[in-house]
Design a protein around this nucleic acid. Sequence first.
DNA 1: TAAATATAGTTGCTTTTGTCAACTATATTT
DNA 2: AAATATAGTTGACAAAAGCAACTATATTTA
Lengths: 149, 149
Amino acid sequence: MIDENIAQIRAFNRYYTSVIGLLDKYLNSDFSLTEVRIMYELYHYPQGMTASGLIELLNLDKGYLSRILRSFEKKQLIEKRQDNKDKRSYYLQLSETGKTIFSELSNTSQQKIVHLLSSLSDEQINELVGHMNGISSILKTSNLKKNEK
Amino acid sequence: MIDENIAQIRAFNRYYTSVIGLLDKYLNSDFSLTEVRIMYELYHYPQGMTASGLIELLNLDKGYLSRILRSFEKKQLIEKRQDNKDKRSYYLQLSETGKTIFSELSNTSQQKIVHLLSSLSDEQINELVGHMNGISSILKTSNLKKNEK
DNA sequence: TAAATATAGTTGCTTTTGTCAACTATATTT
DNA sequence: AAATATAGTTGACAAAAGCAACTATATTTA
């Protein structure tokens, strides 16, 4: 019984991996998925967020993140300001350029989803979104955490 | 209205990316996600499947796949037999070892899902699976295809 | 049926992505 | 003030993925 459920969940994960892959492919090659995820978080945290915060949130290696952030700085996508309480850390924010670029990315990705959805009826779309919300809300009550290795 | 839907779908994709990441992380470092996906397909295609089939199905680069298959051969996870109608292609199958190893992998991944689910009620689990099936069946009626770049 | 074109898979080379460990600077704890 | 912890950086490296040229076979076409 539970085995059955697990098998279905695994099947869904595999399937959805490819869905995400197809949609992300479209995200265009200027940024990696990781980079987009970082930009996403910064975009939605306009008050600023530290590198450690991103590491925690997105489960990234700090060295890796550090380099990505450096490249963002070089491209002037972000701005850093040092925390004057704790001089080891910096608050990161998207610059105006960064916000613009991120919005454009969003649009591209959006268009691909529009394309994907174009073959669905309004009702199917509503169902789809409903299912997604259902999954999120159930999983968010679970104790799925990054650090439980 | 539709914008709203798109935003939700994108949010779900981001969220679910991390769910999959967390579950896959557990898949242990012996095989990459791509390798596991390949093994999965071969496992469920006991009659044999060609490299081209895998490329099509999983949207892989043929050079990359070729090397992965070679490593599988070296580890004796798969067996190849040449198609005698078309000598350019080979049917690929998991060997007994390959099947065993894949099953073990499945178990590991299964356990992680059990863990994830352990904090959910039976009813929540049913709902979760129901939503997943809903998404899959809706998307499968859509025209999402690899080759629409 | 010979020449042209297409397809399956391989190989060399490169790029991208990610990991690990050591290190600097600052903070916190004892 | 010494020991320990944390934020972020850097160097070295490994794993994952992509690209293009190539070989061998198949298929199409003139």
